[in-house]
Lab assay of single mutants.
Amino acid sequence: DVEPGKFYKGVVTRIEKYGAFINLNEQVRGLLRPRDMISLRLENLNVGDEIIVQAIDVRPEKREIDFKYIP
């Protein structure tokens, strides 16, 4: 289970104008929005990159997770 405030290693699987989709595993995916990136820009991410993200909002009923990147 993903818990708000905890850090997780994930893989960038898709990049859109509104953010990057990060997979923690095959069943768990969330969104990293540009506003939640500190010292990292969306255009510097590539599909396949491994990054450490912090879960900031977890909505299991909608199967949605918002992430934050903190270097």
Rank of each mutant, 00 (worst) to 15 (best):
D1Y: 15
D1T: 14
D1G: 15
D1L: 14
D1E: 14
V2K: 03
V2Y: 09
E3S: 12
E3Y: 13
P4H: 08
P4K: 15
P4S: 11
P4I: 15
P4W: 08
G5W: 08
G5E: 05
G5F: 10
K6Y: 09
K6N: 10
K6A: 09
K6D: 04
F7K: 06
F7V: 06
F7C: 10
Y8R: 00
Y8F: 05
Y8D: 00
Y8H: 02
K9Q: 10
K9M: 10
G10C: 04
G10S: 02
V11E: 06
V11Y: 14
V11C: 08
V11T: 13
V11H: 10
V11F: 11
V12E: 00
V12Q: 00
T13G: 07
T13M: 09
T13F: 07
T13H: 06
T13C: 07
I15S: 01
I15G: 00
E16C: 09
E16A: 13
E16P: 02
K17G: 10
K17E: 12
Y18C: 05
Y18M: 06
Y18R: 06
G19I: 03
A20E: 00
A20M: 03
A20K: 00
A20F: 03
A20C: 06
A20N: 00
F21G: 01
F21M: 08
F21K: 03
F21N: 02
I22H: 01
I22R: 00
N23L: 08
N23A: 14
N23M: 12
L24N: 00
L24W: 03
L24H: 01
N25S: 14
N25C: 09
N25H: 09
N25K: 06
N25Q: 07
N25G: 11
E26C: 11
E26G: 13
E26A: 15
E26N: 14
E26I: 13
E26D: 14
Q27M: 14
Q27E: 13
Q27T: 14
Q27I: 13
Q27S: 14
Q27W: 15
V28Q: 10
V28H: 09
V28M: 10
V28Y: 10
V28L: 14
V28I: 14
R29G: 11
R29E: 09
R29P: 02
R29V: 13
R29C: 09
R29N: 08
R29M: 12
R29W: 14
R29L: 09
G30F: 04
G30V: 04
G30I: 04
G30L: 04
L31G: 01
L31R: 03
L31D: 01
L31N: 01
L31S: 02
L32S: 01
L32R: 01
L32K: 01
L32F: 01
L32M: 07
L32E: 01
R33A: 04
P34H: 08
P34D: 07
P34V: 13
R35T: 10
R35I: 09
R35C: 07
R35A: 11
R35S: 10
R35K: 14
D36V: 03
D36T: 03
D36S: 07
M37L: 06
M37T: 05
M37A: 06
M37S: 05
M37Q: 03
M37Y: 02
M37F: 03
I38Q: 12
I38Y: 12
I38S: 12
I38F: 10
S39E: 15
L40N: 05
L40D: 04
L40T: 07
R41A: 12
R41E: 11
L42W: 05
L42G: 03
L42P: 05
L42M: 08
L42D: 02
L42Y: 06
E43I: 11
E43S: 13
E43T: 11
N44R: 08
N44P: 03
N44F: 11
L45M: 09
L45V: 07
L45T: 02
N46I: 12
N46D: 10
N46W: 15
N46A: 15
N46M: 14
V47K: 05
V47P: 07
V47C: 06
V47H: 04
G48R: 04
G48M: 06
G48N: 07
G48F: 07
D49T: 07
D49E: 08
D49L: 07
D49S: 06
E50D: 12
E50I: 15
E50H: 15
E50M: 15
E50Q: 14
E50V: 15
I51P: 00
I51V: 09
I51F: 04
I51T: 01
I52R: 09
I52Y: 10
I52V: 14
I52F: 09
I52A: 04
V53M: 15
V53W: 02
V53S: 00
V53C: 04
Q54D: 01
Q54R: 07
Q54H: 05
Q54C: 10
A55D: 00
A55E: 02
A55V: 15
A55F: 04
A55C: 13
A55L: 06
I56K: 12
I56N: 05
I56W: 10
D57F: 12
D57P: 03
D57H: 14
D57Q: 15
V58D: 02
V58C: 04
V58P: 05
V58I: 10
V58H: 06
R59W: 06
R59Q: 05
R59H: 08
P60E: 09
P60H: 11
E61L: 10
E61H: 13
E61R: 08
E61K: 11
K62A: 11
K62N: 10
R63V: 07
R63I: 07
R63W: 11
R63Y: 12
E64I: 11
E64F: 14
E64H: 11
E64S: 08
E64N: 07
E64A: 07
I65K: 02
I65W: 08
I65V: 11
I65A: 06
D66Q: 08
D66Y: 14
D66S: 10
F67N: 01
F67T: 02
F67L: 11
F67W: 10
F67G: 02
F67D: 01
K68A: 15
K68W: 04
Y69F: 12
Y69K: 02
Y69E: 07
I70P: 04
I70G: 07
I70F: 13
P71C: 09
P71L: 06
